[in-house]
Amino acid sequence: MAVKEITGAEFEEEVIKSDVPVIVDFKAEWCGPCKVLKSTVEEIAGERADVKVVSVDIDEEEDLVDEYEVFSIPCLVAFKGGSEVGRSIGLASKSEIYGALGL
């Protein structure tokens, strides 16, 4: 399932105020591992109706990168009730990602 790319302006509405848990995929166009991980992220979006999955382009959204202290990509951050509950950094299998994100 395709993953919606969001901007910093949409972050509050799409992530912080979301009623369901959200996975944010911090990625960049120049990042090979991020592009390899994309198919896994799309698979998660397709199989988990109870979770919202969105992506953020780190080159466009420096404020979000600073606020959430992203220093390495690919970086998946899980949010529940507006707070971070888990993080998965680097390439990983789907089961490793679920484990790291606590979902």
């Binding site: 090979g32 591992p33 390899v36 198919s39 680097g90 390439l91």
Partner: peptide
């Protein structure tokens, strides 16, 4: 494959 296809080469620009 444990992580994702490509191996180490995907980090090479």
């Amino acid at each position: 494959e444990a992580k994702g296809y490509g191996g180490q080469i995907i980090k090479t620009p």
